[in-house]
Design a protein around this nucleic acid. Structure first.
Length: 217
DNA sequence: TAGTGTCA
DNA sequence: TAGA
């Protein structure tokens, strides 16, 4: 707790940390854009509210989710897939805000993936105790495009493994403004988020917000 | 095909 | 942490 607070008060010094082949952490890359990103999240959830998806096996996910962009990731008894409309309203997902698109493209570029044009952004809300167990992002059509993941609010422990579930996982602390990009040889790496520790973030209170940008089609 | 959950 |  003391260390988390200290981390958040340090001057922002953007830099890149290698995570694995094809995977990097861009520390504080989104720090300056964060207030605008959070305002946009509030507008998104006003029309496409947070909801807890259910896995095909019938388990309720602890992380609350919504989407913006041309396609949104959903899970229900029928499986995982991308949908052009919000099943709750039948309306298209909210458009991807320009600051989202720009940040994702710039982060991908900085990580060595030029020309990233996301058409889907999964927006995740973590409250204390919530987690996302180890999984692969493999519902996308074109696996040449990377995944860009933006952390806002409370810090989290990100788990990043290999191409098999049983591969050893690295545990890395992700703070407000950090961006992780993985693609190429890491595109199908298993990853997840450890149960969120409670805390109080100046902009987000007891929440962590994660934006995951993908090229779904 | 199951499945980003849960238990041991 | 690994395995079902």
């Amino acid at each position: 707790m003391t260390f988390d607070l200290f981390d958040d008060l340090l001057p922002e010094t953007p830099h890149t940390e290698p995570l694995a082949a094809g995977a990097v952490i861009l520390r504080a890359f989104a720090h300056a854009a964060a207030p605008a990103l959070l305002e946009a999240v509030a507008r998104i959830t006003a029309s496409a509210p947070w909801r807890h998806l259910v896995t095909p096996g019938g388990q309720r996910m602890s992380v609350a989710m919504t989407n913006c962009g041309s396609f949104g990731w959903v899970s229900d008894a029928r499986g995982y897939r991308y949908e052009p409309a919000d099943p709750l309203s039948g309306q298209p997902w909210p458009a991807m805000p320009e600051p989202f698109r720009t940040l994702a493209a710039e982060a991908a570029q900085a990580a060595g993936f030029a020309g990233f044009a996301p058409d889907a952004c999964l927006v995740n809300r973590y409250l204390p105790g919530t987690r996302l167990s180890l999984h692969q992002d493999r519902d996308e059509r074109d696996l040449r495009a990377p995944i860009v993941s933006v952390s806002l609010g409370l810090p989290a422990t990100f788990l990043f493994g290999g191409l098999q579930r049983t591969d050893r996982t690295a545990r890395v602390r992700l703070a407000h403004g950090d961006v992780v990009v993985w693609g190429g040889p890491s595109r199908l790496a298993y990853h997840g988020v450890a149960p969120l520790a409670d805390g109080d973030h100046p902009l987000c209170g007891h929440e962590r917000i994660n934006l995951t940008f993908r090229r779904a089609r």
